[in-house]
Design a protein around this nucleic acid. Structure first.
Length: 743
DNA sequence: TCGCTCACTTAGTATTGTGGGA
DNA sequence: TCCCACAATACTAAGTGAGCGA
């Protein structure tokens, strides 16, 4: 992508005319389309999906890409144009995914020749490594810019790790070298004119106490600081940082005045925004330098991007939902807290002068480069590689392979759990009903959680009696179960679903003689469930159902919503709709954007203005018609035609704006990103880019929509729109509103 | 079997970058 | 040229599940 951007800049430098701008947009379109093509092929291979239409369309667009390349404006080199059928080099059997490489793992971790690799590949690896090392040496000599320029001029070939064999026996790498983490900048005391007041009087704080106070001041406008738990936890931890004198004086948070601090940070933020272009550029260059130095590692002869090379800065913990620990002080991480993981024979990262690492480890059975233990929950945090890396890509691939295997035996598993609903044993019935929910509703497994340590959220196995309601009859449907609970990230899951009679009866049984806060599935946990799933299929866990159902929902929706006769935008629209169905299935929600109300208001103003314009245009048309009737000449006839066209144009513009408003309103609470990234998009995460190229987003997030599209993949009902783009949208909006009204 | 740790994936929010319309 | 909206990216919290030892 960087290379692509680079070309884009060059392009702008040399050809600024409109013609070229047009070609740029065309190319963006093609790049997105090309990626869509790749993913489409993957889907075809994954679930035998019928996407011939898409492939044909993308093929034509790929041709366009090639033409654009001649203009010196090519798509990124990693966009492959592979044969459709087996583009993904997907092995025929799962076994072949695993490399049969000799496991002669040497304790020295030297990047030496790997036996099972063919000589060509091995040579290439060796060459790569030498290249990287020589580049590094150059960098040290201060020739960074040259190196970069060279890299830009000669686009490197994308490493096709998926064509290589994989490690076995849990070995993740043989050689790993990196520069360690980037620490948060040290605290800079506030200028003397920025004061803190306690009980109306100015008070100079010690640097330690002042730093923690600034964390609170920075969040003053946030809802968090109004929450009792947040304030209580913050105050408790803040007092720990105070001197005994400060502790004696500051006893009530309500009497603390952080306003000047808060104003100071706001002013700083404004100043940053108002910086000159030159200053902004300087900062950008410095960030780029840090990225080049710390943002990459060498893993098995390849330079790989690190995802999060910066250590989390100190601050106040922002737990989600009603988190009992929100507001607690997240302390500053120092080098002595850091465990570094790298090869024995690599150049170890240097700790900052005068400090030491906690430990330097050489564990090649894990993927992390750096780890530390955070102080809020005592959990371990990691620095790992970017999703584009080989190590993450392979894992992602494996995930879809497992989902593909599930497809082959899902019918048998479903038949089995249906049979188990009748079991004499309560534990088996509970297991079967839970699995039914996981499969039908894509619920998460629901591990047990330590009470009081985190927000009270649940998944399937940890559902409590209070989380469901049973209706023998509801809205004309039989055996309805109403779910209402907080899931991951305290996102509310609300759904009313008709279930099979046996499930309903079983649920009644499970709830008998129980209190609302008792476990619904008291004889089940995730460990028991996963053990059972493991017996049904190797590698099967509750999580796989979510991947599988999300994936197959996309497939079904694509199939049902698309029409080979339609134009590309309409097809892309269908693609986005299919994605929305998945987001709804997986309950991916978001908080409405902060600027939502304002942007809706702006849009409404535009609509109002357009309406006024329309009535003016209609009035003018009427008078032109009257004029033409009297004059009966060509000129006045022409005038009528012109006015007619103007009315038509304004009407179209108005409709577009109205559709946009509805669209935005519906998109208020839905989050499409997660499903595209983690469930729908095989290695490469390219689908998200398509959305970028085609910002055609229709959304459906209201509870009624869930029932419209259907919560289950294998029971999903879909809307079959066949008209053109605008009409499609209008019908869609109308139907949704009607359903919402009826609901 | 259970409790626990560790390693990883999945998730929503915040921030930054970018393109298009006024 | 500026501003707005939205996409992309960064950040980090919150899940899942394997594996280990008592």
């Amino acid at each position: 992508k960087d290379k692509y951007k680079d070309k884009e800049h060059k392009h702008k430098d040399h050809k600024k005319d409109k013609e070229r701008e047009k070609s740029k947009h065309g190319n963006r379109y093609c790049v997105g389309a090309s990626r869509l093509f790749i993913n489409t092929c993957f889907w075809r291979s994954l679930f035998s999906i019928d996407t011939t239409w898409l492939i044909t369309a993308m093929k034509s667009l790929d041709g366009k890409v090639k033409k654009e390349k001649e203009n010196g404006f090519a798509s990124p080199p990693y966009v492959k144009s592979e044969p459709e059928e087996d583009f993904y080099h997907s092995p025929k059997h799962e076994k072949s995914l695993k490399r049969e490489r000799d496991d002669d793992y040497d304790s020295e971790f030297k990047p030496k020749k790997i036996k099972t690799e063919n000589d060509k590949k091995a040579k290439k690896r060796k060459q790569d490594n030498e290249d990287i090392k020589s580049k590094k040496t150059k960098n040290k000599k201060g020739e960074v810019a040259d190196g970069k320029k060279k890299a830009k001029k000669e686009p490197e070939e994308k490493w096709k790790w998926w064509e290589e064999e994989r490690y076995t026996d849990g070995v993740k790498w043989r050689f790993l070298e990196h520069k360690g983490p980037v620490f948060a900048p040290p605290y800079e005391p506030l200028p003397s004119n920025v004061k803190f007041y306690y009980d109306g009087k100015h008070m100079k704080l010690s640097p330690e106490a002042e730093e923690v106070a600034t964390f609170f001041a920075k969040m003053l406008d946030h809802e968090y600081t109004t929450k009792d738990i947040f304030r209580k936890n913050f105050f408790k931890d803040w007092r720990k940082e105070m001197t005994s004198e400060e502790k004696g004086k500051i006893t009530d948070l309500k009497k603390c005045n952080f306003t000047e601090m808060s104003e100071y940070f706001k002013a700083q933020s404004e100043a940053r925004k108002a910086m000159t272009k030159e200053d902004k550029l300087k900062i950008k260059e410095e960030n780029e330098r840090i990225l080049q130095e710390y943002g990459f590692c060498i893993m098995d002869n390849h330079r790989e991007r690190i995802a999060n090379f910066r250590i989390e800065p100190p601050g106040l913990f922002r737990g989600r939902g009603d988190h009992p620990k929100m507001g607690m002080l997240k302390r500053r991480i120092r080098p002595q807290d850091i465990i570094v993981n790298c090869s024995k024979d690599s150049k170890y990262p240097e700790p900052p002068p005068g400090t030491k690492w906690k430990e330097v480890r050489h564990d090649n059975k894990v993927t992390w480069l750096v780890s530390w233990t955070e102080n809020i929950q005592g959990s371990i945090k990691y620095i790992m590689l970017n999703p584009s890396s080989r190590i993450k890509g392979e894992k992602d691939w494996q995930k879809y392979e497992t989902a593909r295997r599930l497809k082959k035996c899902v019918d048998r598993i479903r038949a089995q759990y249906r049979e188990d609903w009748k079991s004499k044993e309560m534990r088996i019935r509970q297991r079967a009903v839970a699995l039914y929910f996981i499969d039908k509703l894509a619920l998460r497994a629901g591990n047990e959680k330590e009470e009081g340590e985190t927000a009270d959220t649940v998944g399937c196995c940890s559902l409590r009696v209070e989380h469901i309601k049973l209706y023998p009859e509801n809205d004309g449907q039989e055996y309805v179960v109403e779910f209402d609970f907080l899931g991951k990230d305290s996102i509310r899951y609300y759904n009313k679903v008709p279930v099979e009679k046996r499930v309903f009866k079983n649920l009644q049984l499970f709830m008998e003689n129980k209190e609302p806060d008792d476990d619904l599935f008291d004889r089940l946990n995730t460990s028991i469930l996963n053990k059972h799933l493991q017996e049904l299929m190797d590698g099967l866990t509750a999580k796989v159902f979510r991947t599988y159902n999300a994936s197959i929902t996309l497939q079904q929706q694509l199939k049902e919503l698309t029409n080979s006769e339609e134009n590309i935008p309409a097809k892309i629209l269908s693609y986005n709709r299919a994605n929305r169905a998945v987001a709804i299935l997986c309950n991916h929600q978001r908080a409405p954007p902060k600027t939502f109300e304002k942007s809706m208001q702006n849009l409404q103003t535009k609509i109002d203005a357009k309406r006024d314009q329309l009535s003016d245009a209609k009035r003018e048309l009427k008078s032109a018609k009257a004029d033409a009737k009297v004059r009966k000449d060509e000129k006045s006839k022409k005038a009528v035609e012109t006015k007619k066209k103007a009315v038509q144009r304004i009407e179209e513009q108005l409709m577009k704006l109205e559709v946009q408003a509805t669209d935005r309103e519906e998109n208020k609470q839905i989050a499409l990103g997660t499903s595209k990234l983690n469930y729908l998009d095989p290695p490469g995460h390219d689908c998200t880019k398509i959305n970028g190229a085609f910002p055609l987003r229709r959304s459906t997030t209201k509870p009624n929509v869930r029932s419209l599209l259907g919560p289950s993949t294998w029971q999903t009902k879909t809307l079959n729109f066949k008209s053109q783009f605008v009409v499609l949208t209008m019908i869609h909006v109308f139907l949704l509103d009607t359903c919402f009204f009826l609901a």
